[in-house]
C-alpha cells in the first residue's frame, strides 16, 4: 500500500481553536477537509506537514444557510454532493450544481468539499507524480527543483488551476470568508488566485476558509459550466469553462463574461461587456465571444492533451455553451 508520511492529527471543535492551531504550527500545519486532494498528494510526497488540522469537528463549517439579503452561505466543509443536491442551489445556481457533479466521481463528490475544491492545489503532469517519478525526471519548480519542465525558461511555475467549481463561482460573483488569527475578511473568489502555480493562492498564513458566499443571482443573467476531459469519470478536466451572459438574449445583451481554466495557474477571466453591449446573442456574436475568450488563454504542456487542441477547444466549448443558451442544439450532430 502507498503510505502516508507520519503526522500529528488535531480536531478543533470551533473555528477559533482551529485558527489558533494553524497560527501555532504555521508552515508545519495543513488543513484537512475531505482530504481527496491533500491525501493523495501527501502519498506522493508533495506535502509532509507535521500536523493535520481536521475540519470534521466543526459543525459550523458544514451546511448551506440562507444569507441575509438573499443568496446562500455555503460552509467550506460542505461536500460537493450536498451542494449539488441542495434544492436552493439547483434553483438559483444550476451551474454550480453542475460543476460539483463533474468533479472526479460521485464517490469523491460525497467526500470532497467545496472549500477544498476552491483551494485545490494547482496541477501539472510533472508535479502530480510520485516522489520516485519526480526524482527520475528531476524535481520541478513547484516542488524541490529550480526548473519548470513545462516552460524551461519560466521564472514562475505553470501548474494549472483545475478546480471544477471555480469558473462558475467567479461568474456568480462568489466571495470567500477567510478567518485568521488576526481576524476575518471577505474577498471575491476571483481574487484568491495568482499567476504563479507554486505560490498560487492569496490566503495569508494560517487563514481558514470558512464559507463561500453566493450573492443572489442577478436577474436576467445566465451561467453555464462546461468541462472537457478524456474520460467521463475519474478525470480532471483538460479544459474548464464557464460562460455568463446578462440581458435579453434576443433584444440585446448588457454584459458577458467567460472564465477559462486548466490553462494556467489562475482561471482566465475575460470581460466582454464592450463586445456584447446592446447586441442580441446571435450565432455570429457567439462565435465572436468564443474567439475573444480563447485569445488570452495560452495552454501549455501541463496536461497529457496537446496545448493546440486545448486552445482550439476553448472556442468550440464556449460557442457551444452560448448556442445552448440560444436554444440551438449543440452543434454536435
Amino acid at each position: 500500500m502507498m503510505r502516508l508520511p507520519a503526522f500529528d492529527y488535531r480536531v478543533p471543535r470551533e473555528v477559533g481553536e482551529a485558527v489558533s492551531l494553524l497560527a501555532e504550527y504555521g508552515e508545519d500545519a495543513k488543513v484537512l477537509a475531505g482530504g481527496t486532494d491533500l491525501l493523495p498528494s501527501m502519498k506522493q510526497g508533495l506535502f509532509t506537514p507535521k500536523v493535520l488540522v481536521s475540519l470534521r469537528g466543526m459543525a459550523e463549517l458544514r451546511g448551506i444557510r440562507d444569507a441575509e439579503g438573499g443568496g446562500l452561505r455555503v460552509g467550506a466543509a460542505t461536500t460537493l454532493r450536498d451542494v449539488a443536491r441542495d434544492p436552493r442551489v439547483l434553483a438559483l445556481y444550476p451551474a454550480l450544481a453542475d460543476a460539483c457533479s463533474t468533479v472526479a466521481t460521485h464517490i469523491i463528490q460525497g467526500t470532497g468539499t467545496l472549500g477544498g475544491n476552491v483551494l485545490l492545489d494547482t496541477r501539472c503532469t510533472y508535479y502530480n507524480q510520485s516522489a520516485f517519478w519526480r526524482t527520475a525526471l528531476g524535481f520541478c519548480l513547484k516542488k524541490g527543483g529550480d526548473v519548470c519542465h513545462v516552460a524551461r525558461t519560466s521564472p514562475t511555475c505553470m501548474a494549472t488551476a483545475s478546480a471544477d467549481t471555480v469558473p462558475a463561482l467567479i461568474l456568480m460573483g462568489a466571495n470567500a470568508r477567510l478567518v485568521g488569527a488576526a481576524g476575518e475578511r471577505v474577498v471575491p473568489v476571483e481574487s484568491l488566485y495568482t499567476d504563479d502555480g507554486r505560490d498560487w493562492n492569496t490566503l495569508r498564513p494560517g487563514e481558514l476558509l470558512t464559507e463561500v458566499l453566493l450573492p443572489p443571482p442577478a436577474p436576467g443573467s445566465a451561467i453555464l459550466h462546461r468541462k472537457m476531459r478524456r474520460r467521463q469519470a475519474i478525470d480532471y478536466g483538460f479544459l474548464l469553462a464557464a460562460v455568463r451572459v446578462d440581458g435579453d438574449l434576443a433584444g440585446g445583451l448588457t454584459d458577458a463574461r467567460v472564465v477559462v481554466s486548466c490553462v494556467g495557474p489562475r482561471p482566465v477571466v475575460t470581460p466582454l461587456g464592450d463586445l456584447v453591449a446592446g447586441r442580441p446573442l446571435t450565432a455570429e456574436l457567439a462565435e465572436e465571444i468564443a474567439h475573444a475568450a480563447a485569445r488570452p488563454a495560452a495552454p501549455l504542456t501541463t496536461h497529457g492533451v496537446m496545448p493546440s487542441y486545448r486552445k482550439k477547444m476553448i472556442r468550440v466549448t464556449v460557442r457551444r455553451a452560448l448556442d445552448t443558451l440560444r436554444g440551438e442544439p449543440s452543434a454536435a450532430v
Partner: peptide, 23 residues
Amino acid sequence: HVFRGALYQSPSILEYKIPTSLD
C-alpha cells in the same frame, strides 16, 4: 503509453485512461 524521454508520462490509473462505465 506516452513517454517523457524514457519516463512514462502517466503511470497511474488517473492518468492512464482505462475506461469507466461511462466510457
